[in-house]
Write a protein that binds this DNA or RNA. Structure first.
Lengths: 325, 325
DNA sequence: TTTTGTCTTGAAACCCGTTTCAAATCATAC
DNA sequence: GTATGATTTGAAACGGGTTTCAAGACAAAA
């Protein structure tokens, strides 16, 4: 690997001049510039990013901390972030934590020590606020609501409104007995969605019918079984997210219950899977691309944006698991 | 951010001694050790990985270059790699290329300049061999077969055998008119799978029935439409991968063709989606976790393993889109 | 011709953890 | 008490790109 000093020697200039040619940080005599360019060409010199990063205190790196990359929602979010990052010459460092708090903390420290320029994190961990003091780089929390503070900022979608929309849609579609599968209430998005559902119930004088569930496929199947026993006349199901909605469909399908004729289903998130399955899933869509892009931009653009919270609108996407009217 | 020199000053020792205490690279007087530990505690010192990496010429980083993280197969592969990497204290740097060769090359250069310890890449690009000379770190190619050479190694599964198994299974399940949806033949896995199918046809004196398709959902739907027109008596479909199998199912489902009663389907890969959909997809499973783990280990363990190619076995997973006998 | 100003350039310091090397310390052996 | 060996320790160099600072070069103004 050729170093800048090798190039300098070959071009008969100083390393400083080579640096200036590469970065265009100062005027360099045309003649010397040519020599440097030629020397770079000949040696195949590629500047060492580590050395650069050590001095600049920026590695052009964004840390991505999430429970698991294999959760389709996070995958899509990661994809959106990657596209935005790449556009600006930034790279992503992946850290899966399985929601283990210690791993989260360790990941943050590691990323700071790598001179990462910022961290995007999805966590339900209330301790997050303390992380802010732990480091001097921006931390963006996505998909969870919090009160922003310091260099901790929040980007997410309006889950409460989404919860209302889901409920209102099923009512519009003629459901008489709607059951809401609540997600874990420690996760703010799950809580907000449920709150939306609940408020619509109150406003319309509908009795709440709920069952608890994790954001997870296996759980979803088990809970659907229980749900069917508990609410025998159910004709509409609000799943806490698309993954659970898919498992709800599977159970209904296995039992020969027709969707949407006998039971209608609505999910949350609009992950790619929602369009893939047959029937296609009606769902409340989160603008995942916009959320990811905004989160990345908050780090990359380093603007003095004082706004601490960015909320995007949820959107109803009607497909085949609810009845058109 | 406290530096090692701050700690040294506070503990009244030299930076070298602090380094030795941290890394256990040499004996240090107990008394001084205590002082150092105390100073680290007090300052909240975390060693700067960038400086360490600059000297060590290793950043404990694995570069992951793939067309898109959003392709479920790659997502799962990335997950498997991440788990193995994390176990050994390595991080993953994500580079999506959209299969653009220039981006691939740029990503490799970037990763080398970041002092990455190795690169795992999924590419159909025949030029790869030249990359070997481009850098002195191991490059592991997964899911594509090649002839390994130098520090370029190959980890993949036996797609040819998988292709045979798919065909043989549909025959066993009683299909009389089997159509193979061929993937792009420039991609070695697609070619190998097709070759397996083809050879079984020849051995059994069956006439080949094929149609061409990319590894992609949209294409899959279009191609299935054509397939149904071209082969009106089709009763078994081998899809080039699970994603295409899902789209095949969707088209059949929309047309009211029952699966597996009228047409049986078999896919490839056994991505998570295969178990999620209803009916569950029969498929040829790749041991994604093992492939990912092996690829990561080849980089992390730095063994002088001379083996250039690692081939894993494919496995038939019978589910609901083929008929049990 | 001298002065003032502008531009180009390279030496050296910088970022910070690691390692080498030689000096210093201590203990054991003669 | 001196010689020999073993151990601990810190100063300094190292990795490699960037930036500062002051010197040198050159042009324009006086």
């Amino acid at each position: 690997m050729a170093s800048i000093r090798d190039v300098a020697r070959l071009a008969q200039v100083s390393p400083a001049t080579v640096s200036r040619v590469m970065n265009g940080t100062a005027n360099v005599d045309e003649e010397k510039k040519k020599r440097v360019l030629k020397a770079i060409e000949e040696t195949g010199f590629v500047p060492n990013e580590v050395a650069r990063s050590l001095f600049k205190r920026s590695a052009k790196l964004i840390g991505l901390i999430m429970p698991s990359i294999e959760n389709p929602f996070f995958t899509q979010l990661a994809g959106a972030i990657e596209r935005t990052a790449d556009k600006h010459g930034y790279r992503l460092v992946l850290c899966n934590t399985g929601s283990v708090i210690e791993k989260e903390k360790a990941a943050i420290q590691m990323l700071v020590s790598m001179n990462a320029d910022g961290i995007i994190l999805t966590s339900s961990n209330d301790e997050i606020r303390n992380y802010t003091s732990l480091c001097n780089i921006p931390i963006i929390v996505t998909d969870r609501s919090f009160n922003g503070c310091g260099n901790l900022k929040i980007v997410h979608c309006d889950h409460y409104q989404g919860g209302r929309m889901a409920m209102e849609h099923l009512i519009r579609c003629g459901c008489k007995s709607i059951v809401c599968i609540k997600g874990q209430q420690e996760i703010s998005s799950a809580k907000d969605r449920y709150d939306g559902y609940k408020d619509v119930c109150q406003e319309k004088g509908i009795k709440e019918q709920t069952v608890d569930c994790a954001y997870d496929f296996e759980q979803g199947m088990k809970v659907t079984d229980e749900l069917l026993k508990k609410y025998k006349d159910v004709d509409g199901i609000i799943a806490c997210n698309d993954m659970v909605a898919v498992s709800v469909y599977k159970v209904l399908h296995n039992k020969g219950i027709r969707v949407p004729e006998q039971v209608q289903i609505i999910g949350f998130d609009d992950i790619a899977l929602a369009k893939l399955m047959s029937p296609e899933l009606t769902t409340i869509s989160q603008p995942i691309d916009e959320i990811g892009a905004k989160a990345a931009e908050l780090i990359i653009l380093k603007g003095e944006e004082t706004q601490q919270e960015y909320i995007f609108e949820a959107k109803l996407v009607e497909r085949e698991t609810t009845r058109h009217n």
